[in-house]
Computed example of a mutant assay.
Amino acid sequence: MAQACTDTQACTDIDHRSRAAAILRRIAAYTGVTVATVGLVTAFAGSRAHAADDIDYDAASASEIEDHLGDLETERDAAATSLTGLQTQLAAANAVITATAADYGTTGAQLLDVTAAVESADDELGAKVSTLVEYAQEQSDKYAEAETAAETVDRLEPRIADLQTQVGKLDAQIEDAQAAYDEAAEAEAAAEAAAAAEAAAEAEASAEESSSSSSSSGSTAEYSSDAATAAVQFAKDQLGESYVFGAAGPDTWDCSGLIAGAYDVSGVSLTHSTWAMWDETSGIGRDELKPGDLVFYNGQNHVAMYIGDGQVIHAPKPGDVVKISDLDMGMSIDGYRRI
């Protein structure tokens, strides 16, 4: 059985030496261990985000691929933000490691520090031991903190590596999705252009069919030479007279008024309206045109009278006069009709 200590000072010295020895053993166990500060590391919150759902680029529309691309970019931004946060924390921890190493250094450097601290204390043994204990306690606390931080760093590093891999994969997926979107958008634009061209071709074919039908029915239209000749002459007699919208003579005319007035001299009644005249006449082909036949222009908004030799006579527009122009005078031709 150990003998009880009876001298107060001696007991104090023994207690100090015992504490110092225990602390120094603890310090030695930590010598050379990588140090990091506590509280700087925050675990990556939650489970790792799942990669955006797979998509069949060959079957998906440009709009679907664009939505998928947006999901990938959102996921990539979130992963990159988490990665930056963890890397910032790790950099701060490494800064603490560097500072700790500078403060305490190797075992030999620590021994020199302890020796200097003891030698600077009073000669009395209790004072020296107390100085040693204080220094050892400071190191013990620091290395205890370092041990906890080192364990946290060990957990942090694989998470950083995992996030770096995830960001790299998402970057590659985003590149593939962008290329697929560009290709799909180009293909859809080409398809729309082709559809528009097909629709235009169908409309043109329909118009040609309608014109052909009009031409076919026109071949049976009877041509009244006397009425046509009289109408052409009447129209020529009005050359130089002013255009006035809605006028039908005797000294001013609009386009349909001139035609109605010209045929009225032969007792042929036509409505003073281009659209009505279209319905009141028979369709013919361009190659069947004879003097006195009618030519409609600009969506049936204008009518002129053919006078032969590729020319027509008409009342063009406000500010103009009755005059002769080329059959193809720059306005789109809707068709050819016979009274």
Rank of each mutant, 00 (worst) to 15 (best):
D309I: 09
I333P: 02
A117C: 05
D176S: 15
D71G: 08
E138T: 15
G330F: 00
K236V: 06
T281R: 05
G261H: 02
Q110P: 02
V321A: 09
A221Q: 06
S325F: 01
V268C: 04
S211N: 09
I307S: 03
A315G: 01
T274N: 04
A101L: 09
D154A: 15
L163N: 06
G105V: 00
A144V: 11
T12Q: 13
A101F: 03
Q311A: 07
E145P: 00
A200K: 07
R76I: 04
S332T: 14
E183M: 14
R76D: 07
H272K: 02
A195D: 11
R76A: 08
T274Q: 04
I339H: 03
Q173S: 15
D254A: 09
S224R: 05
S225A: 14
R25I: 10
R48D: 14
Q173C: 09
D58Y: 12
Q164N: 13
L170T: 07
P316Y: 02
D123F: 03
G310E: 09
P318C: 05
A185I: 02
M1T: 10
R286L: 08
G240T: 03
Q87E: 10
A199R: 15
R337G: 00
D326Y: 07
A109H: 09
D54R: 15
L24P: 05
A197C: 00
A193F: 02
A228V: 08
E175I: 11
S332Q: 09
A36W: 04
A172K: 15
A190Q: 12
A45Y: 10
F44T: 11
E134A: 13
G257W: 02
A203T: 07
E288I: 08
A235M: 01
A99G: 01
A117D: 06
L132I: 08
